[in-house]
Design a protein around this nucleic acid. Structure first.
Lengths: 264, 264
DNA sequence: TTGACAGAAA
DNA sequence: TTTCTGTCAA
């Protein structure tokens, strides 16, 4: 028996908006700790890890560990039927091959339940080792989203370089080149507007903008984003989910190619 | 000679937005009583009835009863050329095969007139008997529109069931099932937010969501919608048009099929 | 008042 | 699928 009651149901809608373009089907894992997901994107290049801790739910009952395979597009369709202020309850009976999403309007005048078939999904749960990163950048998530979107109109890849001066995002395309430098800045009115660069060692890594722009779908979940970089390691793009957990995206850097890669 | 001056011209634009997807060509009937229309949808399944009473017009002159056949798409195109605050005047000379729409901007700085050819349309004016309904539900039109839209993302048909507890909208599709229960609620701040269920007898009827979602195009015309249900009778979905009349949609229920309809 | 976003139409 | 428009928020 599983029953998870989430007062701020819009959180779950946003989570699905953030991952459904990247991953088609995935197992949600429930344990007494929380509600989590780990999945590779459909082209097996990026990895998503989601955690919603049990403490973040108004009511959390999970009698035994259970893994529920869902089609994220269908799940998202159903969640879209909830109002933004609705309370969402996820229910599953033991041994059932369905999951039920219940939506309660704030006034309790409208109560909906949506039942969805579960699927069997081979899950390869990777252990992700905690790593030391050469550089960790925390910045406003909207600013990071705009940078990735802007650069994608010029080129396909972004070079993220961290020095003690700040972070540089660069790209190059047919129509020209672009460099966006963001300096560390902690003297702001609100802490979520700060840009903080923690650097042990300078790094410069190249990533596919296509994936970065998928990751920024999570922007509505948090005002800030944390980007952790080490040479030879996948970058981690993390959005904290208030009081509940996080959504993390992992993406391996591209091996830097020669300058004249465009002239084969 | 016909001359109808409507100060709130946007009303007429909204009316056409509401019916032009359902009906291609229709006769507008003018009499001293008002401006009305009755037409079957192009697949002869649903019926639209519109009434704009003469009292709702600033000036209403209709010397003799006249029926004007119009292509609603073309009429809508012309009305889209009017500003939302414009005063619209509909004119037709006796014996003329055209109708003229005149638009006056609120400041009178811009006056446009659009002339459109009339068409001959065989009209089968059905007498719609006043019926006693088993149940009449009045609810916010936006809420009804969201329910129909949400359910259409899951299934093709909706079962509307009225009991003394309230109204239930249900559907079933490939990805799962959905039930939305709306309870009677009269203790709201604004009367247009109330949901009122008048029930003489419980009813449960099935309708094609495709048509329901056409009907909800009329949502901008009214904050509330009234749904009148009787077994064996077409449902009536009515939007009142402030101070002027109504637009009503009629749709026959589907005959409930067997549970195993999906296994032919 | 303007821009961004999402939904609708082509 | 892409574009456009309407609406919402800043």
């Amino acid at each position: 028996m599983l029953e998870l009651r989430l007062v701020q149901g819009s959180l779950l809608k946003k989570v699905l908006e953030a991952i459904k373009d990247l991953v088609n089907d995935a197992n949600f894992d429930c344990s007494s700790t929380g509600f989590s997901l780990q999945a590779m994107d459909s082209s097996h290049v990026a990895l998503v890890a989601l955690l919603l801790r049990s403490e973040g739910f108004e009511h959390y009952r999970c009698d035994r560990n259970i893994s529920m395979g869902m089609n994220l597009n269908n799940m998202s369709k159903m969640l879209k039927c909830s109002g933004n202020d609705d309370i969402i309850t996820i229910k599953a009976d033991d041994g059932s091959d369905t999951v039920t999403f219940m939506f309660e309007s704030p006034t309790q005048d409208k109560i909906s339940d949506f039942e969805m078939k579960l699927m069997d999904i081979d899950s390869e749960h990777l252990g992700i080792p905690e790593a030391e990163y050469h550089a960790i950048v925390r910045m406003p998530s909207a600013e990071f989203a705009k940078i990735c979107k802007d650069l994608a109109s010029i080129g396909d890849t972004v070079v993220i370089s961290v020095t003690k001066e700040g972070v540089k995002f660069s790209t190059r395309g047919d129509i020209g080149t672009a460099n966006i430098v963001v300096r560390q800045n902690t003297t702001v009115d609100k802490p979520e507007e700060a840009t903080i660069v923690e650097m042990n060692e300078p790094v410069s890594l190249t990533f596919a903008l296509r994936y970065m722009n998928s990751f920024t779908k999570a922007t509505p979940l948090s005002n800030t984003v944390t980007i952790s970089l080490s040479s030879e390691l996948p970058v981690v793009v993390e959005y904290k989910i208030a009081e509940m957990g996080y959504i993390r995206f992992y993406l391996a850097p591209k091996i830097e190619e020669d300058e004249d890669e465009t002239k084969p």
